[in-house]
């Protein structure tokens, strides 16, 4: 299945050549979970605070579907 992946702030440093506007477009095995995807692209799990799949908060063992947009964030905040 194909996923569109977006990374925030410091997580971008773990994927060389990451282009902010484009994000990553990846082909991955069916049924992959959010946590597996993070490991697959080399993100340290302990630095991930928030994951959104199609704009909804998700957990590490949630599975994804073809065409999903997945965004990873470390702890971020403002106001």
């Amino acid at each position: 299945m194909r996923l569109h992946i977006k990374l925030s702030t410091t997580l971008r440093d773990y994927v060389s050549g990451y282009e902010p506007e484009r994000g990553l477009h990846l082909e991955v095995p069916e049924g992959m979970t959010v946590g597996e995807l993070a490991r697959h692209i080399g993100l340290p799990l302990e630095e991930i605070k928030i994951v959104m799949v199609n704009g909804r908060h998700s957990e590490a063992d949630d599975a994804m579907r073809d065409g999903d947009r997945v965004a990873f964030f470390p702890a971020v905040g403002g106001g």
């Binding site: 925030s8 959104m52 965004a71 702890a75 971020v76 905040g77 403002g78 106001g79």
Partner: peptide, 20 residues
């Protein structure tokens, strides 16, 4: 967030996450 996040990216860090 208080230790490094806000210093490095300001409150503007919220733009991408609110978009998402």
């Amino acid at each position: 967030i208080c230790g490094t996040g806000l210093a490095e990216y300001g409150t503007a860090v919220l733009v991408n996450i609110l978009h998402e």
